[in-house]
Design a binder for these strands. Sequence first.
DNA 1: ACTTTTTACTTGCAAATCACAAGTAAAATG
DNA 2: CATTTTACTTGTGATTTGCAAGTAAAAAGT
Lengths: 158, 158
Amino acid sequence: MTYLSPVSKKSSDHPRSGCPVSISLDIFGDRWSLLIVRDLMVRGFRRFKDFQQSGEGIATNILADRLRKLEESGILATAPDPGDARRRLYRLTTKGIDLAPALLEILVWGATHEQTGAPCEVISQMAKNREAVLAEVRRRWQNDDPTPILPWLGGPPK
Amino acid sequence: MTYLSPVSKKSSDHPRSGCPVSISLDIFGDRWSLLIVRDLMVRGFRRFKDFQQSGEGIATNILADRLRKLEESGILATAPDPGDARRRLYRLTTKGIDLAPALLEILVWGATHEQTGAPCEVISQMAKNREAVLAEVRRRWQNDDPTPILPWLGGPPK
DNA sequence: ACTTTTTACTTGCAAATCACAAGTAAAATG
DNA sequence: CATTTTACTTGTGATTTGCAAGTAAAAAGT
């Protein structure tokens, strides 16, 4: 009788090229991961329930799985809520906030080429002021400012 | 006996928010689509077999499926090879080449935060010269120039 | 104190998607 | 005209997903 070790078929087993794009997609190349990052980044979401009710219709088992994988890959970190021990708070790490440029370009592409719910005016302002938008996203992250960024359009208010 | 129409569960059926990021991820939010776009964009791949042998290990049924979906969503277009009727040639559309900024940011993120096979020097040059790199990618696309872009580093040669 | 509610999950299951191997049709090559 | 090449398709089992339901711990209500 032979024993065959249970050949685990985790996604990390697949042979991949060393290309950074390939490695990145191994981490967040799915339908949900970047939506969670987006919600953390620009909507100020911090709790499990926020993501669950984000309007994207993610199932709770998938959400829990993605939060765990994003934490494992160092994109976000969790901590218990000091004010309510039932809750866990999710925050982007530096590695996570560094996804802002990629997310912004994906946003601009989608708004440019697909019918989306985003007002064209807002998008073209964001596309024109990429650096300012990214600076504001980073500022909010550093200050732990959960205010959604959407009212902030196309340049710092004077 | 009641007949229930077979409720098709295509991914397009899922309820989604109108966010451009969400709609974009519905189109290319998987492990393979952006790798195909990358190969068309910077490696000059044109044929089925090129993608198959790209080193990422994509199965032929998945490759065929992704090429079809990318064509359906207008990111690439196919035509028979004028010189060999067995072949079909795949090319990016304008919509496809417009993914270049997103792809570049994903590349920079991956190279910055993960152990990849990309030399750091090359990546930092690309990150510093984003606009020049993107201009060169677009130039090659317009000229139908399939030369891989990798030897071209960090700025136009003088 | 105790019942109810909230929160962040886990579990079970059917359906969809995936990876892998093999097969096929059409066209080119020898 | 037999062989090879190309771009796929098909079959099969494994993995992942979507959906509904359940659960444990903590908070809130009475």
